[in-house]
Design a protein around this nucleic acid. Structure first.
Lengths: 149, 149
DNA sequence: TTGGGTGCAAAGGCTTTGCATGTGA
DNA sequence: TCACATGCAAAGCCTTTGCACCCAA
């Protein structure tokens, strides 16, 4: 999709990064698999199909930079891999991320948005004087499919 | 504290584990520092003061087992270390863990309990058919002390 | 031109594992 | 007795880093 390519190029420039084939390719891979939570290795494999010369180190360096700029979201499931997905709102960062449902049976990951935590965060600020600016919520359980089996 | 020692011995037996000096020592270290979130290396260093012959591998194996049995809680702050703390209710496991406040400035960790998520979990179960059995909540922000500076 | 970006390989650093020995039940 | 637990060292494994080369601006 050339439209996406243009968007990514602008996104990179806007954040003071040089536009390189590798960076655009990585963003394309992530954006073509929304909510897929890919590991660095998986991103590497996908990018290599179109751009065989890319190195794994470049993938690591790129997702590092993109993550620091909040252009992509990090997800750690404690399975030894850090996963990444493209932010729902791309460059627009409200400081709050969406939450994840993780199936303990099949490993599927579902994302959802909920503002229920805002009340909790206000409560914490009032009682403890702790100013919450970001949160990470993971809910573990059994997904519909696995429950039906 | 001999009382704690006895308690830990019973706890280990109850869970089908052999009672060893190393395991009791590790539980003692964790229980004497509640809410401290120690890394394996830190646990190792503390235990070595009283029991110099212990090996780091034993610490790793022990916290693994204790964590699997929900006798201790795992906390991952994405800083390269996995941390452990003794469960507030020891062997009594209701499947839900407490939450953490993490200060982005000084790195302090505060724990708190809140049942606000239950409404959210019910909502998810009704709308998505996903049965939540556990959750992990991390709130990032600025603690009172750092705000005052 | 030139400083940031990339590829490759080596190094890092936390954690796990193999194996012989030790020990709790 | 004997299956489980431990210590030590080596191996694993994901990720980072050094360095020379390359290329977008």
């Amino acid at each position: 999709m050339p439209d996406n390519q243009d968007m990514f190029k602008k996104l990179l420039k806007k954040n003071g990064l040089k536009v390189t084939t590798q960076r655009v390719a990585i963003l394309e891979v992530l954006s073509s698999r929304p909510g897929k939570h890919l590991t660095a290795e998986e991103i590497y494999d996908f990018v290599k199909k179109k751009y065989p010369d890319i190195g794994l180190a470049t993938v690591y360096r790129t997702i590092q930079v993109l993550s620091d700029l909040n252009l992509i979201d990090k997800l750690n499931l404690d399975d030894g891999y850090v996963r990444y997905e493209i932010g729902k709102k791309d460059n627009e960062d409200n400081g709050h991320h969406h939450h994840h449902l993780i199936c303990l049976d099949c490993g599927s990951i579902f994302s959802f948005q909920d503002d229920l935590l805002e009340a909790l965060e206000e409560h914490i600020e009032e009682t403890l004087g702790f100013k919450v600016v970001d949160h990470e919520v993971k809910l573990y359980g059994h997904c519909k499919k696995c429950l039906e089996k």
